Every structure is written in structure tokens, then in C-alpha cells.
Computed example of a mutant assay.
Amino acid sequence: MKVIGFGDNVADVYLHTRTRYPGGNSVNFAVYAKQLGIPSAYLGAFGNDEIAAFIRQELTSIGIDLSRCLQRDGENGYAEVNLVDGDRVFVGGNKGGISTQLPPVLSKDDLTYMKDFALIHSGCYANVESELPKLRRLDALVAYDFSEESKFRTDDYLGRVCPHIDFALFSGGHLTEEEITQLASRVRVYGVDGILVTRGSRGPLFFCGGETYAGTVEYVEPVDTMGAGDSYLTAFLIHLVQSGWKKNQLPSREAILSGLQKAASFSAKTCLIDGAFGHGQSF
């Protein structure tokens, strides 16, 4: 089993400590999978600046396959993070830089390479919606992160993305349970088999096969919550695939329940380190 993150990469730049960390939804997925013992890769576009070199260096040291990545002339993505009233919040950045301005267009060679992967993960900030139909030619399951912004929950956007994916993730800490249920119903219309909605300390809800599953969280005193949702998603997805989930086939109830628990434990550990997965560099 191998998995791949397809999309953006950024440096999370912590202004209050003058430290930057590698990150980005697709990168985090690849790294967390590697931490769980799964061979993983990342496919995306890097810039040609200092931040790009830093991220590539750290991902290579972790053992992430970057062999199909592109390097383009331009500024790599970064997000500025600061400490506001005790919480780390995003305060600026360049909206993904070159990785979203000129995202990869999947070639025949790329798709041949991706045939070896059981699971592909991407997200709404990667600007790769046009490439998702190509992934449907593969046997891999496709997961997609819609984040928390309402613009990624419109009928137009769901209609562009959902027919080409198997698993949808939403951040729904600001939504009521009724709103979450309605959202899941809208997504299910497009044939999406699994819908996970994280709700922070309230625990996630997972919709699958007409059933609703309530997950739990493991409470820790967090050092940094960066990457908590990504790590939860990664651990949950990998457990489902390892338990036999395949395209057009629902995971078992037992796999779902045990996967939700494993994901909670893994996500809690992520909250005990700085950055999404450490590897900080002072600047």
C-alpha cells in the first residue's frame, strides 16, 4: 500500500517565534502517512526560493517521494501565523504562491506513476479541481478536504468536485449538528461514500452507508493544534484502506469504529509538537 498527497505545499511561518515549518494539506497527509509506516509521496509545484528549498529538504529527510514534483520560477507558498490572545491564528501569506498559481497539470506519465497508489488526497486550496476527473481513471480512492469556508460548500463547487471523489472532509466546528447533517445529505447526492466532519473538541461525525458515526477526541494539553485535522483524517483513511475499503465498496462498521478511535489517538499526539509535524527552522 502506498499513498500520495496531490496539491499545495506551504511553509507555516510563525512570526512570534521567528520559526517556519513545512506544511500544507497535501504535504501533511503524506508526512502523517509516513509516520504511520505507509510509503508516501507528494506531487505538487515548488517555487525556486529559500522556502521551497527548505520544504524540499525536510520532506526528503523524512523520506517522502518527490520524484514527480515540479519546480517553477516564482515564490513558494507560505502562511504567516501569530499568537493572538493565546491562540495561534493565520494572519497573512501569499495564498499558496506558485503551487496554486501554476498547479500541476497531470500528464500521462503522472497518471501512470499514480497507478501504484491506493489512496490520493487533495484539497480545496490546491487549485487542482480541473485535474480530479483524470484521477477517476485510476483504481485509487480519492479523498478531498473542503476546509471550513462556505465558498467550498456551494452547490456549484460541490458539483465540480464531488462526482470525482470517494471521501469528503469538512471542518465543521462552527456548524450545528442539523447543518452538518444537511451538508452530508447534499454531498451524498453526488455518490460520495464517506463524509467526515470534524468539530474540534466536540468530536467528529462520519456519514457512511446511511449511518452516522460519532467519533471521540483524546484530550491533551496542546502545544500546537496545527495539523490536528489533517492527522485525524490521515490516520482514519489509512485504517479504512488497510481494513479493506476499496472504490465502490463501503468500509465495515467495525473498521469505521476502530478507525475513529485510532485517528483520535494519532491526532492528539500531533498536538504535542510545534508546527504540523515539527522540522522547524529559525529565520
Rank of each mutant, 00 (worst) to 15 (best):
S231K: 01
G209P: 13
Y125T: 07
N9G: 02
A118H: 11
V192F: 01
I120R: 07
F206S: 03
G23K: 05
A140D: 07
G210L: 07
F146I: 08
T100R: 11
S282T: 15
G191W: 03
D139F: 00
L36T: 03
L196P: 13
R137V: 04
C271Q: 10
Q35H: 08
L111P: 15
G77A: 06
F29L: 03
L15R: 12
V187G: 11
A168D: 06
E177V: 12
G227T: 06
E148H: 06
K108F: 08
D145C: 14
V89Q: 07
F206D: 01
A255D: 04
E148G: 02
F46L: 04
D224R: 12
G74Q: 09
E58D: 12
V217E: 05
M1V: 06
K2Y: 02
L66K: 11
K262D: 05
Y190C: 13
G44D: 04
L205K: 04
K108R: 14
A276E: 06
D274K: 13
R160C: 08
R68Y: 11
S243C: 08
R136V: 10
L240M: 09
V89Y: 00
V81H: 05
G77K: 05
D145P: 10
I195P: 01
D193G: 03
V223A: 08
N9S: 06
D65T: 03
I98C: 01
T112S: 08
G227W: 02
I4E: 03
Y78T: 03
H16V: 08
S258T: 02
K151M: 13
V187H: 13
R186N: 10
I51Q: 01
A143S: 15
G23Q: 02
D224G: 15
D274Y: 11
R18F: 03
Y21Q: 06
A53Y: 05
R188N: 14
M1P: 00
L175Q: 00
A11C: 13
A168V: 04
M114K: 07
Q57M: 07
Y190H: 15
S265P: 00
L183G: 07
V189Y: 12
L102F: 15
N76P: 00
R20H: 00
L141I: 15
N127M: 10
T198R: 02
D110S: 06
F283I: 13
D166Y: 04
L233S: 09
G7R: 08
S61K: 14
S231E: 01
V27R: 09
P133K: 15
R160M: 09
F90L: 04
R88H: 11
Q57S: 14
F146R: 05
Q35A: 04
V241Y: 03
R137G: 06
H16C: 09
I62S: 00
C162A: 15
Q182I: 06
S150A: 15
N76L: 00
V128W: 00
V223P: 07
I64G: 05
A45L: 00
Q281F: 00
K115D: 09
D110N: 08
E211T: 12
G227A: 05
